[in-house]
């Protein structure tokens, strides 16, 4: 039983840390290297997802689930936009100039060296005994942070109740104000985004829409050889009443 007893359960932490950190970093590099938007978004999903794993590992269950739901779910929208904006010319590639790469690598490398140096430079951050001690005193309750988090957002810090600082011990100093500010901010941002995404509803699109349509159709005709379309075959004269009502209805649908 020697081996079994030897490999302490503490090493699971190391194992999963390496796993999640590895996936996260590798796919982040993939995001950097690939040029296909949809694949980029997909790799980003994997990277962010395994970062959520790191959050779970560090005991932040709620934040991890939040990361999955909002961040990764938000990337979903990115993905859709990627598909939408590139659907006309699939697998669109926008190559970066080599100079940019060199420059970015140099600057990024320097920054990385600096940051890693800083991260590894503080002794108390590298103190493994602290983490071993914390793990040894493992208590599942420590991860149960959803309610304290919620209360903190409403302005009460239940985790500071036994604090030495008398000001904190009242259970004050919550995050109510930031919470409200962020809420209002979100609302404003969503309204603003919805407003901005609308172009002026105009019959005079800046880059001729019909021209583009015509080009597209010519291309399509080439693909499906027996399709013959004349791009400018629209007759508004033969409209009947019922059709107009139908068109109005469709407009309503489109506005929805």
């Amino acid at each position: 039983m020697g081996i079994l007893a030897a490999v302490n359960r503490v090493y699971w932490h190391e194992f999963f840390f390496m796993l999640f950190a590895g996936i996260s970093v590798v796919f982040a590099v993939c995001v950097l290297l690939t040029q296909n938007i949809v694949r980029m978004a997909f790799y980003l999903v994997l990277s962010l997802g395994s970062t959520a794993g790191l959050f779970f590992l560090a005991g932040a269950e709620f934040v991890g689930a939040m990361q999955l739901m909002i961040y990764v779910g938000g990337t979903l929208v990115l993905l859709i936009f990627g598909v939408m904006l590139t659907a006309q010319q699939r697998y669109v590639k926008m190559n970066t100039h080599p100079t940019d790469w060199v420059l970015a690598t140099i600057v990024g490398g320097s920054l990385l060296v600096l940051l890693i140096g800083a991260a590894a430079g503080v002794d108390s951050w590298k103190d493994a005994s602290a983490s071993k001690k914390a793990l040894a005193e493992l208590d599942v309750d420590d991860a149960r942070t959803a309610t304290p988090l919620g209360l903190a957002l409403t302005g009460v810090r239940v985790d500071k109740l036994d604090s030495d600082d008398p000001a904190l011990a009242n259970g004050q100093s919550g995050y109510l104000l930031p919470f409200i500010i962020v809420s209002v901010h979100l609302l404003v941002v969503l309204i603003g985004a919805a407003y901005m995404a609308r172009t002026k509803r105009s019959a005079t699109a800046p880059v001729g829409r019909a021209e583009r349509a015509r080009l597209n159709i010519m291309q399509m005709e080439h693909e499906t050889d027996d399709v013959v379309y004349s791009a400018s075959k629209q007759s508004s004269s033969s409209l009947l009443d019922s059709d107009q009502s139908q068109a109005e209805e469709s407009t309503d649908e489109a506005q929805e």
Binding site: E14, V25, L54, A119, K126, A128, S131
Partner: peptide
Amino acid sequence: IAAITVSHYLIVGAILFVIGAVCMATKR
């Protein structure tokens, strides 16, 4: 593997940060 400390997390964070920054710089 040494026991995981704050530093390990910070290093992962730093790598992601730098990759993100380079991504911002190089993507068109």
